[in-house]
Design a protein around this nucleic acid. Structure first.
Length: 714
RNA sequence: GGGCGAUUAGCUCAGUUGGUAGAGCAACCCGUUUACACCGGGAAGGUCAUAGGUUCGAGUCCUGUAUCGCCCACCA
């Protein structure tokens, strides 16, 4: 008899647009994205092994790009496979408030559209506008994640700046403060004159530029010549330093000179310090404690104090006419001219120089002395076996994929300096520190101290105006999303998380910070393995950028070729840690594959069904082959070889199933029963990679259960 | 300056412990319209960057070189 019930939709090519949204809705309604529902419905055993991941929270400013869709696809493959394999599987969504990034986007928007600056609105109003903006863009992000097919547990969604996460942030801050890890101190920090805030060492991008190096003397009377690319800073010099073994200058070491530098009085002490390179320039280093981190350290060692000569807007605070009040770049030229006029310049040469710029604003970093909050990574922590944060990070048993990232990570930790965590912007977690009116007392906590808390009565307390580096709250993500500081069941079950998957550009910013925070707060690693994907580039291998206009919108691609085709095209040919190239042509290739699968299903579903079960000569061998494929695919996924798993499935479905097995069925050497079985198992194995079309076909086979929770066949 | 990665068919890339080079796309020839033209069949295409070494045997391991790329870095 003929099965006439095959759906008419199979008579046409596969239509992803009509299919995908209803399928996602069906999944979401089932509640199976939430592991608790899976247990309640008997899909998952209550004592099954957990599998958990956090979604790297996209920036609240973000729209989805090809990097995000690759990330979502990889993670969704793991989540779906493990859920099908019977694990208690949890994947937590969220968004990142991305402090500086978001505030600057909104500020630019306000300036452009309404001509408003941050101080026109004030703190409260600006924050309200930012929150409004963030709400809108979070909704977009959620929609996009659904479009990619992410099987995220939306009931557990989190936001790095929501109330619960704020509670976690404040608690960690207090605890780190009490342990002496968070300290407030004066240091030369990275000041971004454009963004008007400090930034951490990691938020600096080095750019190579041409610069003129001047070799000159402060004055005629001064015996030593120095070399610098920044003569304008020399008004702040406190010393000149030479190497202790440099015979040329030993006679001057220890002497102090009171001189005049272009009309400004300077007191210069000659010191010996091993930091100085004898071979560079004249071998004499002008020490400017307030405007160079190196010089600050040298000065500290020799107990010298410098004067600040550049302000927060990058303008000169001292100097003669034409220098004072002028921006540094301009002042530099002017000082060079004045030195030339005074006959003090000995040499001028153009050299290549690395300039530090702020990652977000592009502003040229001005090292300035400031009182800021830091996390010290070299303080012994009694509650953690007297180990330092550095040690806790180094010994964390986290597997890196590919493993070369472990070396990169360790190298970074070994060179880590105190992490500056305070920012002079308004959007973010407010530093939970209060100062008494007279400045003599300090209180750490979310609220101003009350008398019960042992505060001194009658004092007026003001909260620190600064906010925290966005990575402080991101660092808590694996446990703050699971309910910490409350001791929740989620925390017990799902932490440490099983896997973290993210871009290789986040090794330091985020991955290292999560390991730091989790090791300190939880006393355990945040995840057992960290998997890194590379950059997604265009077909010519160029970075995706606004100025090149080479952006490919994954949502558009999904509509045009099908989300499954997009997912496959991003997985195949992409190894962990390596950059990948994307083109529409590649996506189109997998659209054809989706359609092939569609037509295979059409054939199988309309194949004549035998009255009773029958065996054909090729059946046994085919089933054995399929079992071995399933084992192979499982091993590939578990060993992070998604590109191989995807390729093998593609090859099997097209060149074994379609080309050979179906043809053999036509010849009568394969039973319909076996054919149907092969289709079902192929759909199951393909489901994590191509969830929409496989579910759609599965549903057309009149299955009671969703393919999404079908048992993984190994 | 330090570290890392890549180099395989025209293009994009596989090649998991060393055992006679693979796929997709493009191009070429032929065919088919009752699963699929978003198709089928066929043929073509590579001294695996380069020079050495280890081995019975190297795309795969070791050393050097070149080119490209990335990350880190307080030589002013």
């Amino acid at each position: 008899m003929n099965d006439t019930s095959i759906d008419d939709k199979f008579l046409k090519p596969y239509d992803p647009v009509a299919t995908e949204a209803p399928i996602y809705e069906m999944w979401e309604k089932s509640g199976f994205f939430n592991p608790d529902v899976c247990i309640k419905e008997g899909i998952t055993a209550p004592d099954a092994e957990p599998f958990s991941m956090v979604l790297p929270p996209p920036n609240a400013t973000g729209i989805l790009h090809l990097g995000s869709s690759l990330m979502c696809t990889i993670q969704d493959i793991y989540v779906r496979k493990n859920r099908m394999a019977g694990k208690r599987t949890l994947w937590i969504p969220g968004t990142d408030h991305a402090a500086i990034a978001t505030q600057s986007v909104v500020e630019k928007k306000l300036d452009k559209e309404e001509g408003l600056r941050r101080h026109d609105l004030g703190r409260e109003k600006l924050l309200a506008r930012i929150h409004e903006y963030v709400e809108g863009s979070r909704a977009t992000i959620q929609k996009q994640m659904r479009a990619i097919g992410c099987s995220l547990d939306w009931s557990r969604e989190a936001y790095t700046l929501d109330e619960k996460r704020n509670k976690a942030v404040n608690k960690v801050f207090k605890s780190m403060y009490d342990d002496g890890l968070i300290i407030r101190k004066h240091r030369v920090i990275n000041w971004d004159p454009k963004g008007q805030t400090t930034i951490s060492d990691d938020e600096i991008v080095h750019e190579e530029r041409d610069a003129v190096m001047y070799t000159f003397k402060y004055s005629k009377e001064f015996p030593l010549s120095i070399s610098t690319t920044r003569p304008e800073t020399k008004f702040g010099d406190a010393a000149v330093a030479v190497h202790p073994d440099d015979d040329r200058y030993q006679q001057y070491v220890g002497q102090t000179f009171n001189i005049t530098f272009l009309g400004e009085p300077l007191t210069i002490t000659v010191i010996a310090d091993k930091e100085v390179d004898k071979e560079f320039g004249t071998g004499v280093l002008g020490v400017t404690p307030c405007h160079s981190a190196t010089d600050y350290e040298i000065a500290e060692r020799h107990k010298l104090i410098g004067v600040q000569v550049i302000d927060e807007y990058g303008k000169m605070m001292v100097g003669p006419e034409g220098v004072k009040g002028v921006k540094t770049a301009e002042a530099r030229t002017k000082v060079a001219e004045l030195l030339k006029d005074a006959g003090l310049i000995e040499k001028e040469e153009t050299i290549k120089q690395h300039v530090s710029t702020a990652e977000r604003s592009g502003g040229i970093i001005e090292p300035l002395p400031k009182l800021q909050w830091f996390i010290d990574v070299d303080v012994k922590i009694p509650s953690r076996g007297n180990k330092t944060l550095k040690e806790l990070m180094l010994e964390a048993p986290v597997t890196f994929i590919p493993d070369r990232f472990r070396t990169i990570y360790e190298h970074w930790i070994n060179n880590l300096r105190p992490w500056c965590i305070s920012r002079q912007i308004w959007f973010g977690h407010r530093i939970p520190v209060w100062y008494s009116e007279d400045g003599a007392h300090l209180h750490v906590g979310a609220e101003a101290p009350t008398s019960e808390m042992g505060a001194i009565e009658g004092r007026h307390w003001t909260q620190d105006p600064d906010t925290l580096d966005t990575w402080f709250s991101s660092g808590l993500w694996t446990f703050s999303t699971l309910g910490w500081p409350d001791q929740t069941d989620d925390l017990t079950t799902y932490h440490p998380t099983t896997l973290l998957e993210t871009g290789s550009d986040l090794v330091f910013f985020w991955v290292a910070r999560m390991i730091l925070m989790s090791q300190y707060v939880m006393g355990e690693i945040p995840f057992k393995a960290a998997y890194f994907h590379g950059l997604v580039r265009d077909e010519k291998g160029r970075k995706i950028s606004k100025s090149l206009g080479n952006n490919i919108d994954p949502i558009d691609m999904g509509k045009k070729y099908g989300t499954d085709a997009l997912r496959m095209s991003q997985i195949i040919g992409t190894q962990p840690g390596a950059d990948s190239k994307m083109s529409e042509e590649k996506i189109r290739a997998y659209q054809k594959f989706a359609n092939k699968l569609w037509n295979i299903s059409r054939y199988v579903l309309s194949a004549e069904k035998p009255a009773s079960s029958e065996q054909k000569e090729n059946d046994a061998a085919l089933l054995e082959e399929l079992n071995s494929l399933a084992a192979d695919i499982t091993a590939d996924i578990d060993a992070f070889r998604l590109h191989l798993a995807g390729e093998k499935l593609y090859h099997y479905v097209w060149h074994r199933f379609a080309d050979i097995i179906i043809e053999d069925h036509k010849k009568g050497v394969v039973s319909t029963q076996t054919l149907t079985h092969i289709l079902e198992k192929s759909l199951t194995l393909l489901h994590p990679f191509m969830p929409f079309i496989t579910e759609e076909i599965w549903q057309s086979m009149h299955k009671k259960q969703l393919l999404m929770v079908e048992k993984w066949p190994v």
